[in-house]
Amino acid sequence: MISQFKAVPLVAPGHTRPVTHLSFSSIAPDGTYLLVSSCKDGNPMLREWTGDWIGTFLGHKGAVWSTKLSSDTSRAVSGSADFTAKVWDTYSGQPLHSFPHNHIVRTVAISPNSNHIITGGQEKKVRIFDLQKPDAQPSLLCDNGSTSHDGTVKSVVWFGDYTVATASEDCHLKWWDVRTSKSIRSLTFPNPITSMELSSQTGRLVVTSGKTVAFIHAIPDSTPAHSLTLLYQPSSATVHPILQDRFVTGSLEDQWVRIHGMDGEEREILKGHHGPVHCVEFSPDGEVYASGSGTIRLWQTTPGKTYGLWQGVQ
């Protein structure tokens, strides 16, 4: 059934350059959650579930490509073009640790127990840092040689106690056991991987590569990936965490946000951005999804529903 309400997004201003990455926290006991954004202006921002600004993490000297929150939202980790990854206290906004790299850090993640962070980027290396021993040398995930991939590492995610997934421009998606620092499985795509996100509620990795969107079980098994070929190249994709009946994409080819059914059928095109859409992400309750371009826009999954800052909608 098509909603009688027009999709009108909330605009979350504040960034001065393109937004490169968006990440929601898990749902807190009171039903709320947080949103953290990365931007080429070098200033990641933290927002309430309504989109209201909480604060800005100040300290990077280059574009920030990725920012993630810990499971309890007390910490954030960011990766930047200034060759560092930083860990932040989300209550005070102060940096707790800064980890130097030899090249641009494109992606970061925090372990479920919040004791470690993982980084990847243009060094083609995936490193694990121990936050309880921040001055210790990091461990390197690799099978042979000194690199983890043969191309820039675009995304890293950590799930379960010991499993990490990494995606690279070398067309490979790899799973790693952090206890051995060795890969345990690999998938090859026909084109460089442009994005990968973990949909923790559905237990799937959502991967974009060329014109392909793939939905893959996060825990490696024999289940084949559900892959779709679109008519355009998505920059990012996100699946509805509850209904699992639709996914949303952005693209660098235009300024639109698209909604697709899980069969690939295009259901709706949403216009509002004034530049390429670099990233999209569903909230953990599935009620809204965020898109990042020159600004952040929050869209209702069911337009017209009373929710968040849409409380006045009748």
Rank of each mutant, 00 (worst) to 15 (best):
R185A: 15
V178M: 08
G160Q: 02
D161W: 03
L187H: 10
K182Q: 12
G145S: 02
S146P: 09
C142R: 10
Q137P: 09
P190E: 14
G151D: 10
K182T: 01
G160F: 03
T147F: 05
R185Q: 15
F159M: 04
S168C: 07
V156Q: 02
D150H: 13
T152A: 09
K133D: 14
V178G: 00
S183G: 02
G151H: 13
K174H: 05
I184K: 05
T163I: 11
H172N: 15
H149R: 05
T166P: 06
A167C: 10
L141F: 02
C171T: 14
H172W: 12
L141A: 03
V153F: 01
W158G: 08
S181W: 10
V178T: 13
C142K: 14
K182V: 00
V153R: 00
L173D: 12
T188R: 13
D161N: 11
A165T: 13
W176F: 04
F159V: 02
T166H: 03
A167M: 07
H149V: 06
D135G: 09
P134N: 04
L187N: 12
V157E: 06
Y162H: 15
F189G: 07
S148T: 13
T180N: 03
T188M: 11
K133A: 15
K182F: 01
S183Y: 08
D177V: 00
P134I: 04
G160P: 01
P190T: 08
F189Q: 10
T163A: 08
R185V: 14
D177P: 00
N144C: 10
P192M: 02
D143V: 01
C171N: 15
L187R: 10
T152K: 12
N144F: 14
H149K: 07
W175A: 02
L187A: 13
T166A: 09
C171V: 15
H149D: 05
F159S: 01
